[in-house]
């Protein structure tokens, strides 16, 4: 069974981004880029399924600029077998990414696609669900546990109030939540090996997908700043402030 893992190149989660002075976006010049943390969890899960003998091949896919090759190499260093770059300089929105991934699925025929639940840059939380809809497949989002058997995936999901377990027919799309696993660190030998693994590049036009954005970003602004308040000396002063100044208790 083949597993496809879409991996996105995003600003590293430790970076605090700055809004550009002209309000056209955030300043991404010279900031550290990494794989979306949820996608590391996805790659790890797929590789574990392969190590357990459940999956036979793990294919990583990234859509975006040429530098996404680094993200694919990082996925291969964790253990993905090969990579596919859908290369474009166009600003990709989730629906476009989902269409590209659908086209890749048509070619590759995976039984399972493991997306991250959200990308930490745009926080859209859409792509996996959209891909499932376009493919006509079931979906199991926000997964914290998965077992595959008899052409079905049993997926435990993080929902309001607790957990729910769904049984979905394969092929299906799953999206990963934080507690699914803890991704391994790629070792140096595996990073070296990853450089030799196959990486194919295709263009959206080769896949017959129109990636034109549907949403126009008119402006990007700094949120209202919250400034530090005051230090209180002790519990008594804290209570006094909360009761008599803030009046919240």
């Amino acid at each position: 069974m083949k597993i496809l893992v879409p991996v996105k190149r995003v600003v590293d989660y430790n970076v605090k981004v700055r809004v550009k002075a002209d309000g056209s976006g955030v300043d991404l010049a010279n900031v550290k880029m990494s794989m979306n943390p949820f996608d590391e969890i996805s790659v790890e899960e797929a590789v574990r399924l392969k190590e357990a003998g459940v999956a036979t091949e793990v294919v990583a896919v990234s859509c975006g600029v040429g530098a996404c090759q680094e993200t694919l190499r990082a996925a291969m260093a964790i253990g993905a077998d090969r990579g596919i770059l859908v290369e474009t300089d166009v600003e990709l929105q989730p629906l476009a990414v989902a269409k590209l991934l659908k086209a890749v699925c048509d070619k590759e025929q995976p039984q399972l696609v493991i997306c991250g639940k959200q990308a930490i840059d745009d926080d859209a939380n859409q792509t996996g669900q959209m891909l499932a809809a376009l493919a006509g497949w079931p979906q199991a989002t926000f997964a914290s546990k998965v077992t595959l058997a008899d052409g079905k995936a049993a997926v435990t999901r993080e929902i309001d109030g607790g957990l729910e377990t769904l049984s979905v027919k394969l092929p299906a799309v799953m999206t990963t939540d934080l507690r699914l696993n803890e991704p391994r660190y790629a070792t140096l030998p595996n990073i070296m090996k990853a450089k030799k693994k196959p990486l194919d590049t295709v263009k959206p036009a080769d896949l017959g997908v129109d990636v034109a954005p549907r949403l126009a970003t008119l402006k990007v602004a700094e949120p209202p700043k919250r400034s530090a308040g005051e230090r209180v000396a002790d519990v008594a002063q804290l209570i006094d402030k909360l009761k008599n100044v803030a009046k919240v208790i």
Partner: peptide, 15 residues
């Protein structure tokens, strides 16, 4: 909000 609320994007939909 985008980037964990560190920026606010104003977006216009053509759909």
């Amino acid at each position: 909000p985008i980037y964990a609320g560190n920026a606010l994007a104003t977006v216009k939909s053509a759909d």
